[in-house]
Amino acid sequence: MRPSRTVTVAATLLVITTMAGSILLLRLVDKARQGATLQEVLYISSPQALKRLSLGYSGLMADIYWTRAVQYFGGNQADNTNNYALLYPLLEITTTLDPKLLVAYEYGSNFLSAGPPLGTGQPKEAAQLVKQGIQNNPDQWHLYYDLGFIYYMGMKDYKAAADAFAQGAKLPKAHPFMRVMAANMAAHAGDIQMARMMWTTTYESSTDKQIRANAAAHLRALKVDQDISALNTIISRYENQTGLTPHSFAELIHAGVLRGVPLDPLGQPYKLTADGSVAVSDPDDLPFITQGVPLGYKPPAKPKLLPVN
């Protein structure tokens, strides 16, 4: 006797069809209870209770909650739903389960502090999260930096930002800029130099591609703002001297006030429009710029971040 061929063939076919069917239904189940896993947060909202429930396996649990937070944030961002109510509770649970999970503080505060569409625009919660992180990891200068950054960029509280930088600067491995930032904060609050220094520090001290890309984009935006201010100065001087409104950079070059067509940080030429204002040629590649936006330009829902190497 051999194993029955009929049974073998039938069972194999049935395994395949039921597998396909179960995967199909699982997708329907997932659709029917979108975010249901996250709703758990509403039932067990106390991080301490959850920590006890995880029976000592809180490290793994923290990783799971961290993934949930990333998924939640990423999912909502993709859907353009600007409801991020569960993000802070998720991050709070994650960091309570594993207080040493630095990525959750850094990335998490980044999500929370930035305004939409890059973040959720909750700088207060972001500061709260990072403060908790500092309490649990007092030797991490980076967390002080994150805190100062949130105060500076998100809440425009320069005094608090200066304090955070000063405290962080005392730590042994702190980035040298920390001391400078603490010192200059009061005097140069709101100044382009200050902002550039902060984004440069972020760019240099982070290893995360997304964070670095974001910092690079901000640095480019600062450069564009600076360039355009300088160009505007040149143009108004030219207008004052000649009484003419220039319609192209060629006119200015001919007049000897410019040596060539100026280039933006990405190497693309700036444009001088007919009404005499300067604009970048590809605003999609340069998010966060405050000057040089072409007239009638509509930014994409999600800022385009050029990859960094």
Binding site: P3, S4, V7, T8, A11, T12, L14, V15, T18, M19, G21, S22, L25, L26, L28, V29, A32
Partner: peptide
């Protein structure tokens, strides 16, 4: 509805797998 379908199909799949192994 979906959960019913899923659970029945999944257990059937595992059961057919068991039959396949046991037959041989």
């Amino acid at each position: 509805l979906y959960n019913t379908g899923y659970a029945l199909l999944y257990s059937a799949m595992v059961l057919f797998g068991a039959i396949l192994i046991f037959e041989h």
